[in-house]
Structures are given as C-alpha cells and as structure tokens.
C-alpha cells in the first residue's frame, strides 16, 4: 500500500522531535475539527533561520508522520523559504500520492509551522 509507506509508518510509530523544546521562541497550535487532529509546534528561530523544531500532537498517521518529518526538513531553512513551501513540497517529501480526502491531514503540520512563524514575527 502506497499511502502507508514504510517511512510514514516509521515516523508515526517512532516520531522524531516530539515533545517540548526548552529554548523555543515561536509557538503555534492547530486543530482540524472534522477529524480531531491536533498539532502544536515549537520552533527556535535565530537570524531568520529555523535552528530547532519540535512538535506534539494527536491524530492520524499521515498528519503526525508528516509533521515529524517536517521538523527535520525545515532545519536551516529561512523564514522566506518556509513561507514559500506548499502542497507539492509536502507530496515530494512524502514521496507518495495523497487522495483529496487526506490532503488536509498532510498539510496540517506545514500550516502550523507557518502560523508559528507569523506569530513569532508579530511577537
């Protein structure tokens, strides 16, 4: 089965960067009311770049694994680079096709990260 590739299952069962980040300076939370998925993001932003990223959350394998992968993917990226990220980047990162019904799950992590960046700028 394509959707539940080994890599997605691995990140779901053994999430990377899950839990609190002590020296974070950017935070946000998102909630998908239709399925109950919750994601919270904690970032360390230094000199316009992401230096650390952690997440916490509950939800489906797609939302949780994608977010965990993103916390690795965004390290070293500038705020502008992250703002420019969109659906194709996520699909590319996951390396699988995602049906329209599940795309929301895959995008929840990215939108939460973008929100943390916006909130950080306004802080």
């Amino acid at each position: 089965m394509d959707l539940y590739s080994e890599i997605i299952l691995d990140y779901y069962k053994n999430p990377r960067n899950k839990g609190p980040l002590k020296d974070a300076n950017a935070y946000s939370e998102e909630y998908n009311p239709s399925c109950g998925d919750k994601i919270s993001i904690q970032l360390k932003i230094e000199d316009n770049k992401i230096t650390k990223a952690n997440f916490d959350g509950i939800g489906c394998a797609i939302s949780q694994a994608t977010t965990s992968m993103l916390t690795e993917e965004i390290i070293g990226k500038t705020i502008e680079e992250i703002k420019a990220m969109d659906t194709p980047d996520i699909i590319n990162m996951l390396g699988i096709e995602i049906s329209p019904g599940r795309i929301k799950c895959a995008l929840l992590g990215l939108s939460t990260i973008k929100k943390a960046i916006i909130l950080h700028k306004h802080a």
Partner: peptide, 22 residues
C-alpha cells in the same frame, strides 16, 4: 492506536467504503 481516518483509508484500499470522523 490507529486513527479512524487511517482505518478508512486502508479499508478503502480493500474496496470497503466506511466513514470516519465525528
């Protein structure tokens, strides 16, 4: 340990149409 959306996605792979959510 398995989210209902994941259940519904896998059921769909096996031709079984079920609903998941609230």
């Amino acid at each position: 340990g398995i989210h209902p959306h994941d259940i519904a996605s896998i059921f769909n792979e096996y031709g079984v149409a079920i609903r998941s959510g609230k």
